[in-house]
Design a protein around this nucleic acid. Sequence first.
DNA 1: ACCTGAACACCGTTCAAGT
DNA 2: ACCTGAACACCGTTCAAGT
Lengths: 226, 226
Amino acid sequence: MSRDATPTRQPLSPDRVVDAGVALADSEGLDGLSMRELAQRLGVVPMALYKHVANKEDLLDGMVDRVWAEVEPPAPELGWREAMRRRSISLRDALRRHPWAVGLLEGRMRPGPANLFQHDAMMGCLRGAGFGFRTTVHVTSALDAYVYGFALQEKTLPFGTPEESGEAAARKLEATPPELAQRFPHLLEVAAELARAGYDYEEEFLTGLDLILDGVERLRPEWIAG
Amino acid sequence: MSRDATPTRQPLSPDRVVDAGVALADSEGLDGLSMRELAQRLGVVPMALYKHVANKEDLLDGMVDRVWAEVEPPAPELGWREAMRRRSISLRDALRRHPWAVGLLEGRMRPGPANLFQHDAMMGCLRGAGFGFRTTVHVTSALDAYVYGFALQEKTLPFGTPEESGEAAARKLEATPPELAQRFPHLLEVAAELARAGYDYEEEFLTGLDLILDGVERLRPEWIAG
DNA sequence: ACCTGAACACCGTTCAAGT
DNA sequence: ACCTGAACACCGTTCAAGT
């Protein structure tokens, strides 16, 4: 119990700093995440953060591992295909909740424990299903590349629901000068179709994912060779 | 001919500003690209740039379209599969030359002419080969997602050649405390294999690309339905 | 009418001075 | 020994003052 008028504020910890960092990036984007703004939201002087994180890079490391911790690891008992499918969907979902993380997930110099765990589980699931070394790396690489790239497109494109996307496409179509329409007829054709029927990210993502998994399935003869 | 001692410097233009922006980002990364540094390299006061580009976002728009202009458009006469394959390889090559562009290619609010041309050519090639509307969008989306995501991984991972990657993996392996090795056995196994044989980005990229193209080929029955 | 230096409102991080 | 305000070296961009 403190006697003074100001409420006793709970002490800072690395976890609280990282949590607040994730919340700030979620709401304001990566550009809105500054040490100074973060400190203000936590009710402390900027300098105080540096006792709990070494610097901004260290903060980002922690934030990225929070995202990895939200990803559902592959469950080998479902069989490799369904396990890969669900974990890819779960990764995309995490990236939709935290779009700022898309460019940061890979390539951390100091991968966190959740990151290591996820990749180990991925390798373990595929190796356990009989995939060879190289094939395991190929499959992981292709699936993750697809999810990252899709998340990048999704994050970056302006519309959410199919309806919104249809309206956006329709507006764009109206605003297109006829001279441009002539130069890019196929683009216009597709834009018109999207304006009519909307663009469903969910279906788009799953179609590509299943297409890749089909491709992986066809690697079977090479399993042992991997 | 100017009479004073300082050499007559060629006048600034939007093109020169954008060119210098690409060069600066290529050599120093996106973080190193500041209006002030760019101005200094061009031998002008920062303010002078604002007569040729509206602001930094406008500069980035121009830079991104430069990258699109370097991508070889699909050549329908090769057949859709080979055309898609080459254009995907060309896109990845452009992104290797300009890694800073990976997160920026999509989602420009004001797509430049080269961007529009590329997407129109992509759609045109697939529609011309008999793919339906939706299928065309699916194929474009899946291929681009894969290339973006792969470029993201590649940009972000620390090693270049297979040999370098082998050495890096070997060093990492040595530095791994046995306690971590126990917790992540599959990761260790794969790291050991990479340390032995190296990691070949080129082969990795092409394997995934062909896997996706195989998947697309299997969509044939649905062509008309698209 | 044009050009630009100074200024504004920010950054991440250091460091010395104060308790 | 601990804490933190002021400072440093940056940002992108505005704007008024000078020519």
